Amino acid sequence: MAKMQFRQGPSRVPFFKTMQRVPAGMMLIPLVLGVLINSFAPQVLQIGGFTQALFKDGALALIGLLIFATGAQITGSHSGKAAAATTGVVLVCKTLIPASIAIALGLMIGLDGFFGISILALLAIMGNSNGALWLAFAGEYGDERDTGAYVASAFDDGPFLAMIFLGASGLGEIPFLALVAAVVPFILGLIVGAVDREWTQVLDDVPNITIPFMSFAVGTGISLGTVLTGGLQGVFLGVGVVAFTGGLTYLGYRYVLKRGPKSGIGFAAGTTAGNAVAVPLAVATADPRFLPYVESASAQTATAVLVTAILAPIVASWVLKQSGGLTVHDPVPDAVA
């Protein structure tokens, strides 16, 4: 009983709630701490043992755990009764078209990209979406078709779509075994989520546990100078994600799905997931040619995560208000329920 009371009592210092109040805070605050330590006291975490394994070298293992949990969520509690059309539109408009354009740019101008924005950064930022934000927004203003389209964001989470695009286009030399290794945790998660819903429920908490530690470990590979120089580019990319990928999804909602006043929900897809900050490192692990871009791409991605987390729901709400669709919990029409 005493133990239960201790767990339910108030926190002396509410670190977790504070991080949750900051847009993308679960990713951003640990990342910044990792950057600061790497910039001013890098030797602190280079002492070996469990300390270095978790806080310095643990990013890839934590990414793998996050990918496994993502796979379990697709076939588990969040899949719901979403229409396949809604999920398809979100996936195509938010991820597949923007990623294809990034690849086309890479083929035309090379991996260096433009204005200090590498193709690796474009793929990481454009090709990952914030599923938690989508669930929260769609749950308030949409219906089961919208919340179920979370499956689309689950598919684009992690590095394997970026690897597939880079490998298929020839821009990256991704070994087949490395691609398989990136997908195996996801496939195992799909299987676990399909056969055991209790595991799915347990794994729902994995992002809250994993993302802060993963982001900190990624931050220890980034210098403060890179963050400062990449900040403006990250802001530009974040605004571009909301306008371009959110706008494409809005058009899909309006003209393909015929959602009328509710089409503004599509702008809520114009985000970058917090775990996208780890995509550059994962890609470079498979193809070392991308190593020179990892530091700047990770910093730009972190900035874009923050910008999109703030801007996307504001834009989506404004568009819904202008069209008269800013009402909560609309029922699913009988024809599509």
Score class of each variant (00 low, 15 high):
Ser77Ile: 14
Leu107Ile: 09
Gly110Pro: 02
Ala124Met: 01
Ala268Ser: 11
Val328Tyr: 09
Ile310Ser: 03
Gln20Glu: 15
Val305Cys: 11
Val239Tyr: 00
Val35Thr: 02
Asn128Glu: 13
Leu179Phe: 15
Leu123Pro: 02
Val279Lys: 05
Leu190Gln: 06
Gly221Ala: 14
Ala335Pro: 00
Ile174Met: 07
Thr303Lys: 00
Ala309Leu: 04
Gly225Met: 05
Leu120Ser: 06
Asn130Arg: 10
Asn38Met: 08
Gly252Lys: 00
Gly48Asn: 09
Gln233Arg: 09
Ala104Thr: 06
Ser317Leu: 12
Leu91Trp: 15
Leu122Gly: 03
Leu166Phe: 10
Ile191Arg: 13
Ala2Ile: 08
Pro331Ser: 02
Ala269Arg: 01
Ile187Thr: 11
Gly231Glu: 03
Phe213Ile: 15
Thr301His: 06
Thr272Leu: 08
Val151Glu: 06
Gly64Asp: 15
Ala104Leu: 14
Gly142Ser: 05
Gly189Ile: 09
Arg197Asp: 10
Gly189Trp: 00
Ile191Leu: 15
Thr308Gly: 07
Ala83His: 14
Leu306Met: 12
Asp156Ala: 12
Ala276Asp: 03
Leu28Lys: 02
Ile37Arg: 00
Ala297Thr: 00
Ile117Met: 08
Gln52Asp: 10
Leu203Trp: 09
Ser263Gly: 13
Ser223Phe: 04
Ala286Ile: 07
Leu224Trp: 03
Ala178Gln: 11
Arg289His: 15
Ile125Thr: 07
Arg254Tyr: 04
Tyr293Cys: 07
Lys81Leu: 09
Phe186His: 06
Gln73Asn: 10
Pro331Glu: 12
Leu171Gly: 08
Met19Phe: 13
Ala154Phe: 06
Ile37Gly: 04
Leu224Tyr: 01
Gln233Thr: 02
Pro333Val: 11
Val283His: 07
Gly266Ser: 07
Leu320Gln: 07
Gln43Ala: 12
Ala162Trp: 01
Ile222Glu: 01
Thr271Ser: 13
Ser296Cys: 07
Ala121Lys: 00
Pro331Asn: 05
Ala178Cys: 02
Thr220Asp: 02
Glu295Val: 08
Phe216Lys: 00
Glu198Leu: 08
Thr86Val: 13
Gly193Arg: 03
Leu281His: 07
Gln43Leu: 12
Phe137Met: 12
Phe50Leu: 15
Pro207Asn: 12
Ile310Met: 09
Leu320Asp: 03
Gly238Pro: 02
Pro10Met: 03
Gln8Gly: 08
Ala312Ile: 06
Pro331Lys: 04
Arg289Lys: 15
Val241Glu: 03
Gly110Phe: 11
Ala138Asp: 01
Val13Lys: 05
Thr51Tyr: 08
Pro185Lys: 07
Pro185Phe: 05
Val206Ser: 11
Tyr150Arg: 12
Leu135Met: 15
Cys93Phe: 13
Ile310Val: 15
Ala53Glu: 02
Gly127Thr: 04
